[in-house]
């Protein structure tokens, strides 16, 4: 398929000799304007790739932090149209940073899917991570996305064995997202050595970059994981920072943009450690 911003970004970082820092936030959390402001400032704080969550009422693969962020966005009246609007607004000032939409299938299915792909592409979306669409369902969205030039980023997990890996890789594009733990987002802590071994094993079967996420919370973890992967994803830690900054009524304060950004600045430093030996 045609080259996307994701492909270009990972290729450039490979030349630099370091891993990508991927930041996850939920679109519309805690409200559209605050969320857009935060999104626009993520690249200068050290984000190489933005993963933007599409809020869903029933996020089955997510831990409490991201569940709550989804609820905050929905309570503020967030919609799929507003998620795509955020991407359009972001693109007015940044045409390079890759944007991946992450979420669950139902809001796309009712949108419906073909219109969603057209609108997402027009808005400037580069990739999709849809948690509840395994390879067995590729005709639903994965193949149509590839046809319009949007990467379908596949998850591989500790339960994805050698037998299953080829199916997972078959129609994947952009990069492979290795889920570092058997579990939900933001809970258990991954062991870098186990993760490096798993990533190395996957790399035997694919030339695609492999990014690692789930449970990464500290700069040290970012640094450790980045030594054996092409990208590190941080999500729950960032959205927890948003939650901590809200006032008693759950509304944004003057800190709601700055505190998550400060965390991104700190954690993203971890991907540069490898360059300093």
């Amino acid at each position: 398929m045609i080259e996307t911003r994701i492909d270009r970004r990972f290729a450039a970082l490979k030349n630099e000799g370091r891993a990508a820092f991927v930041s996850f936030i939920t679109a519309g959390d805690p409200d559209l304007q605050t969320s857009l402001q935060l999104m626009k400032k993520l690249p200068e704080a050290g984000t190489d790739v933005i993963e933007l969550g599409m809020p869903f009422s029933d996020p089955m693969a997510d831990g409490p932090a991201i569940q709550l962020s989804s609820q905050r966005a929905l309570n503020a009246g967030h919609t799929m149209a507003k998620t795509l609007e955020m991407v359009r607004e972001f693109r007015k000032g940044d045409n390079e940073t890759p944007i991946i939409l992450m979420g669950y299938y139902n809001p796309i299915y009712v949108y419906p899917a073909d219109k969603f792909l057209a609108d997402a592409l027009a808005a400037g979306v580069d990739g999709l991570i849809i948690v509840d669409l395994p390879p067995e369902t590729d005709t639903e969205l994965c193949l149509p996305a590839r046809d319009v030039g949007i990467n379908f980023i596949r998850l591989a997990t500790p339960t994805t064995d050698e037998k299953r890996l080829p199916a997972v890789l078959k129609n994947a594009s952009g990069f492979l997202y290795y889920v570092s733990i058997a579990g939900i987002t933001g809970t258990a802590t991954p062991d870098p050595h186990v993760v490096h071994k798993a990533v190395a094993a996957i790399k035997q079967s694919t030339d695609m970059p492999v990014a690692v996420g789930f449970g990464v919370k500290t700069r040290q973890q970012v640094s450790d994981i980045a030594r054996g992967a092409d990208g590190v994803v941080v999500g729950s830690a960032i959205v927890s920072m948003i939650a901590d900054s809200l006032d008693g009524k759950g509304a944004a304060t003057s800190e709601t943009v700055e505190r998550p950004l400060a965390l991104v600045k700190e954690l993203s430093g971890g991907v540069f450690d490898i360059l300093e030996g």
Binding site: V131, L133, E136, D161
Partner: peptide, 12 residues
């Protein structure tokens, strides 16, 4: 019907 689950659960 079908099998719309996260990859972790597919093998299971």
């Amino acid at each position: 019907g079908g099998r719309f689950v996260a990859e972790t659960l597919m093998p299971l």
